[in-house]
């Protein structure tokens, strides 16, 4: 029992603190210390979650947000990946891109929102553009650094067998940077979701961010917090998916027996 406890200590501690918060939250409202209007309660949120599940409201919001998320992320992977590869091939190109990457890193991305509204109008295209902008930098940076820092020993070994530039790229640089590419993707997934929800808060007709803003304005705390919980769950699921993918791709660096 003790050994079992030790092995899962972190998970158990996390679960315990989570349970305590849920309980305190529920009791604080039920015993009348805090008004449900401000914080709702876990039971109300659970009931609302079931209601939204049955009416299809949940599925509708999730599918809209997920669509924007996937398109924005895909564009970011395509553009960030392509730019990263090009920059790894040409130092000049890397230097040309550098100031933009630098601006992008040092400015809050959401500040670009009004420009996209002016260009693309309110709604889906703008939300996708913001998600793209949120996600593109880690993809670019990790692709560039992964390919640029291909192991020189492996490159030399490949060259001794007559490898051409294309071989070095396809057989050494690309597979060698896979762990870094997946790590970039994991960062991008979190950021794209942030971008979607943030942009939906400002101007959308559906989606989880819209739902949060809509119920928030109507002061319907329980409904609003239900959507918030769904956003958090979505983020956790997506990040976990990427983490398991990362472990699979990275087996040769973290694998057992080393």
């Amino acid at each position: 029992m003790t050994r079992l406890y030790l092995r899962h200590q972190t998970a158990l501690s996390a679960l315990a603190s989570f349970a305590v918060i849920i309980l305190v939250w529920q009791l604080a409202v039920d015993l009348g210390y805090v008004k449900a209007f401000f914080v709702s309660t876990p039971t109300r949120i659970a009931a609302e979650f079931m209601r939204q599940l049955q009416t299809g409201e949940l599925a509708a919001n999730v599918s809209v947000s997920l669509f924007e998320f996937v398109v924005g992320l895909a564009l970011a992977v395509a553009a960030g990946g392509a730019l990263g590869v090009l920059a790894s091939w040409s130092r000049t190109f890397e230097h040309v891109l550098e100031p933009f990457i630098w601006f992008k890193y040092s400015s809050p991305t959401i500040a670009f929102y009004p420009i996209f509204v002016a260009w693309l109008g309110l709604g889906e295209p703008t939300i996708i553009a913001i998600a793209f902008l949120f996600a593109v930098t880690p993809i670019y940076a990790n692709t560039l650094s992964g390919i640029k820092h291909a192991d020189p020993d492996l490159v030399r070994a490949a060259q001794s067998f007559g490898a051409r530039r294309r071989d070095v790229f396809l057989k050494i640089a690309l597979p060698g940077s896979a762990p870094l590419l997946i790590a970039g993707l994991r960062l991008a997934v979190g950021r794209a979701l942030t971008g979607v929800v943030a942009a939906e808060l400002f101007g959308a007709t559906a989606g989880l961010g819209f739902s949060i803003a809509y119920y928030g304005q109507k002061l319907r705390t329980t409904e609003m917090m239900t959507s918030l919980v769904v956003v958090i769950l979505l983020g956790v699921v997506l990040t976990q998916l990427l983490a398991s993918l990362e472990a699979r791709v990275d087996f040769w660096r973290t694998g057992p027996g080393r």
Binding site: D151, D153, L154, R156, F161, G176
Partner: peptide, 18 residues
């Protein structure tokens, strides 16, 4: 340049880990 008539064995770390 390297050619198929010669092949090299390196000291270490020249195997592709993946």
């Amino acid at each position: 340049k390297p050619g198929p008539d010669r092949a090299m064995v390196f000291q270490d770390a020249s195997l592709l880990p993946w």
